[in-house]
Write a protein that binds this DNA or RNA. Structure first.
Lengths: 264, 264
DNA sequence: TCCTTTATTATGTATATACCTAAAAGCAGG
DNA sequence: CCTGCTTTTAGGTATATACATAATAAAGGA
């Protein structure tokens, strides 16, 4: 009871429930306790619990049905972010055959440039380096270079990344708490161009993603798409629902909502 | 009283208040009626009004301060979208001198390709065609090709776009209700490359934006940045706040919140 | 067994009420 | 005229309560 009351009741419950979802304590599809039960266990009124659950429903963590109860829904709140770069889903939704080739898998000490990519201050961490080419109907359409912080995800050392992409494996293994994307146009490096079967003069879309969990860097990945094979789509409307998606021509989505800026 | 009750009280008030903001009836900075007053004019309890205003505050339309009251805030919900492509602000925030050159300004009947860009089914509309080069410290860093639907914004015909960018002028003039962005990497067309002072082999980031208001297309613009001069940044976290911004190296932002996906 | 009816249950919406708190406005005294 | 106190005000949070509704479960009859 030393530093017990940082925020409101509402926030305390909100944080706790969301924590249960993000940490996987309440897995996808789990039927969470009823409003009335939560109210009594937390010692608050049903209205308070209701407001929390209503909010989390709007945020997309929960799905509620009368009589049945409330269930954890979706890729845990990751929808918006992850939909942007899940090569496999994209290709399949487009009706093409997805496959990938592992070009490299190497464990090594992190060097300076790795620490920059991971934004890690920690010296002397071990990383797993991976390189893929993703294909649609056999044609290469994306190059991926990834490093994983083994200090944060030791299990990755022995995971079988020839059967499953590292990206989807990580999603299941590690809850993430923040992600950063950089999106830009580049002329591909020579070896990437060769792997993608394009010239270095071909404009490519490059997406860099860095994720972390509780302040610790998890992974960094750099995806390179030939410009004519990939684009991002973002739809906005003030009605508080915008969609962000990646296209290869296919249609996808993930809702994202517009909120106030914090620009100076 | 024929078809009076489509939704809940909450939704009715929410829609009406948001409408007042989006339409400009309640302009930026306007102090909206107090909770208690709204409650009595709508004939509902303060709690109901409070929930609505709390939600709109989270959505970024309003800012509330005790005793002072509630005010309309920000570029009306446009923050997230518009921050992505406001060349002037970007350059200035980077501490460089912003300028632009108008290359074309022509009024003409819409042709087939224009109607495709605007997604307009309406035949025979008149459009205003504009072309700019944006500069930072004199160096070209963005090419803009825009068309404006004069049927929707007749005032644009006589606006002075040599003093003010069409983009910012439109923002003030027309409330928009939806916007769509396409983001991709391209090799620039020959004349664009020449204007930007780069070769056609240089990867460029291309952003297309289409906005509409109440189903009517307003404008379409295509922005082309040399790949080494521009990137987009998106930050996400499950705590319900993500930032999307455009960089030229500078830092910007606009909050965006992750919500549930609607993917099949 | 099958179908219809009824009861139960969990969420959905709305209200009235209570008390708290931050901030502005007013007031008093130096 | 400035300073520090008190009052007022508008929002902030939480509760108890009420009734509506959708979906399931149970009961009942042919």
């Amino acid at each position: 009871m030393s530093d017990a009351k940082p925020t409101t009741l509402h926030d305390r419950i909100l944080t706790e429930v969301r924590g249960n979802i993000l940490s996987g304590t309440w897995p996808l599809g789990y039927r969470i306790p009823f409003e009335t039960d939560m109210a009594s266990t937390y010692g608050v009124s049903r209205m308070t619990v209701n407001k929390v659950l209503t909010q989390l429903t709007r945020e997309g963590y929960l799905e509620r049905r009368r009589k049945s109860g409330t269930r954890v829904t979706k890729p845990r709140g990751q929808s918006a972010v992850m939909a942007i770069t899940n090569s496999g889903d994209e290709v399949r939704q487009r009706g093409e055959a997805y496959s990938f080739t592992t070009l490299k898998r190497k464990m090594r000490r992190a060097e300076v440039q790795d620490m920059v990519l991971l934004r890690s201050a920690d010296p002397a961490i071990t990383i797993l380096e991976l390189e893929y080419v993703h294909r649609a109907d056999g044609e290469p359409f994306c190059h991926e270079a990834r490093i994983i912080n083994l200090a944060a995800v030791p299990e990755a050392e022995h995971a079988d990344f020839s059967a499953e992409q590292a990206g989807t494996w990580l999603l299941r293994q590690v809850p993430w708490s923040s992600a950063e994307h950089l999106i830009r146009a580049v002329n591909p490096a020579a070896h990437v161009a060769r792997l993608l079967g394009v010239s270095v003069a071909t404009a490519c879309l490059e997406i860099e993603r860095r994720t972390e969990y509780e302040g610790r860097p998890i992974t960094h990945t750099r995806l390179t798409y030939p410009g004519d094979k990939h684009q991002l789509v973002a739809r906005f409307s003030p009605q508080m629902s915008a969609q962000t998606s990646a296209q290869t021509s296919a249609q996808v989505s993930a809702q994202v909502s517009a909120q106030p800026g914090s620009a100076p």
